[in-house]
Write a protein that binds this DNA or RNA. Structure first.
Length: 441
RNA sequence: CGGAGCGUGGCGCAGCCUGGUAGCGCACCUGGUUUGGGACCAGGGGGUCGGAGGUUCGAAUCCUCUCGCUCCGACCA
């Protein structure tokens, strides 16, 4: 993309009502535009990041055996009356009436709707286990939205729902999601720590929140730092290996990790003193097993091999996709701006043409753009007539992993300057070397 | 929902107390000089001051109502 043709409204001034750094940076880089309390437009730069996160989440869910579909944002109230949550949910649920005076709602989550779809079609244990997910906008009418996309009212969430014939089988579905989440967050370039969460009405140990450590986090967290060093399951992890699934959970849950709500001073005291971490965290995922909470009232059951009816055991698994955009920035920025993990960066590299109206400089910069594009990379080509400082600062601000600077000085020697944003390391190399570094060739 | 505050060009703000027909910085447009870490000079475009009502000869400024937004707390994926 040529910067002069892109829509990138960066600003120097920080909007006064942005309290945390990710919100400030998202506004300054023109990623989002606020349209109302907790409601945002995703401008091109922000939308690119959102789509990248969405795609990684999709790939990891698919790898774990979940199947994608798409449910609507608007739902019928009757469905929620069946589960009893229409009354129970409270003011956070945005209730709408259509022209026929029918009660509707903007979905805050989709357990009822997915259960309705499931019971409509699935009648046999043979179809299980089944895990269906979608990535769809949700609306929760928060009392006080804040921190930009970190606590918006409208937000993009990946929510998956598992269906199993028994609690034992549901446990395996749960473990698959647990492992898939670790891989997902790893690929997103962040470390998310699983923490025992409030188990809800069913009880047991099958509820975990995944938190990214960041100073602006809304939850206080206490953990054994050893949990941070456990590697993710990895790309070649076998999701059908039940022993491995169980092991992935146990590898982490044997270390202490809890939010303030579940914090146990006595258990924490047993953690070696130099291994204790007291920090703040941002919740980016939440998984839980809820048994027959929805299948019972909504009569979602299947026939067993014995020909009997069994009420299915369910679980649901959320990832805050839009929240992650802010959370990743909270976890990865410096005084000059955002430092995107390569996997979610809006562009793979920036090309700065120091003198776009000098033919020799333009030729090399054009070549850099063509070669990166040919190598299936997505570069942002700054061929504007802005001054050098403005270009450098802007490129640092938006935080692309690599910068290639093409100027008259280097061009004479057949060199360009390659800068790695995260380390700040700069080197004068030939264009082909720079391309090779960026493409990892 | 309790407490506090704010709405004035795209963004950041001043003006309001002590009414007299809107100003600064950034951004934007034009010309010139510049050009390796947010240049300078000159000229220029754009706002009727969140909305409605009222007081007044006259309202961004005073009064009433209303809408919106933010912060602290409580709550919460």
């Amino acid at each position: 993309m040529r910067l002069s043709r892109f829509f990138l409204p960066v600003t120097k001034d920080v909007p006064s009502d942005a309290a945390i750094v990710s919100h400030q940076l998202m506004l300054r880089t023109g990623m989002i535009r606020q349209n109302g309390a907790g409601i945002y437009s995703w401008l091109p730069l922000g939308f690119k990041v959102l789509k990248k996160i969405e795609q990684i989440v999709r790939e990891e869910m698919d790898r774990a055996g979940a199947i994608e579909l798409l449910m609507p944002t608007l739902q019928q109230a009757d469905l929620w009356r069946e589960s009893g949550r229409y009354e129970a949910y409270g003011a956070e649920m945005l209730r709408i009436t259509d022209r026929h005076d029918r009660d509707m709602l903007y979905g805050p989550t989709n357990e009822e709707m997915i259960t309705d779809i499931f019971r409509q079609y699935v009648k046999s244990y043979k179809a299980l286990p089944l895990n269906l997910y979608h990535q769809q906008w949700k609306f929760r009418d928060e009392v006080r939205p804040r921190f930009g996309v970190m606590r918006g009212r409208e937000f993009l969430m990946k929510d998956a729902y598992s269906f199993d014939v028994s609690e034992e089988a549901a446990r395996i579905s749960y473990q698959k999601m647990f492992a898939a989440y670790l891989n997902t967050f790893d690929r997103l370039g962040v470390t998310a720590i699983p923490m025992q969460a409030d188990p809800g009405p069913i009880g047991g140990d099958l509820s975990h929140e995944f938190l990214i450590l960041a100073d602006s986090g809304e939850s206080a967290v206490f953990c054994d730092k050893a949990v941070l060093d456990v590697p993710p399951p990895g790309a070649d992890f076998d999701f059908e290996d039940e022993a491995a699934l169980k092991a992935e959970m146990e590898k982490r849950t044997r270390f202490y990790a809890a939010t303030d709500e579940k914090h146990d001073e006595a258990a924490y005291a047993a953690v070696p003193e130099d291994s204790r971490i007291e920090a703040r965290g941002i919740e980016v995922g939440h998984i839980f097993y809820f048994g027959t909470k929805y299948s019972e009232p909504m009569k979602a059951d299947v026939q067993t091999p014995e020909g009997k009816l069994a009420t299915i055991h369910g679980g649901s698994y959320g990832i805050g996709v839009s929240r992650l955009v802010g959370a990743i920035i909270e976890a990865s920025h410096d005084e000059n701006g955002i430092v995107w993990p390569a996997s979610v960066a809006p562009f793979d590299a920036g090309i700065i043409s120091m003198k776009p109206d000098a033919a020799d400089v333009a030729a090399v910069a054009d070549e850099a753009y063509a070669k990166l594009t040919a190598a299936s990379k997505d570069p942002l080509y700054d061929e504007t007539s802005d001054r050098a400082g403005a270009k450098f600062n802007r490129m640092d601000l938006i935080g692309l992993p690599w910068q290639i600077t093409v100027g008259p000085r280097g061009v004479k020697e057949g060199k360009v300057e390659l800068k790695h944003r995260a380390s700040g390391e700069k080197s004068d190399v030939t264009l082909d070397e720079a391309i090779a570094r960026i493409t990892g060739a």
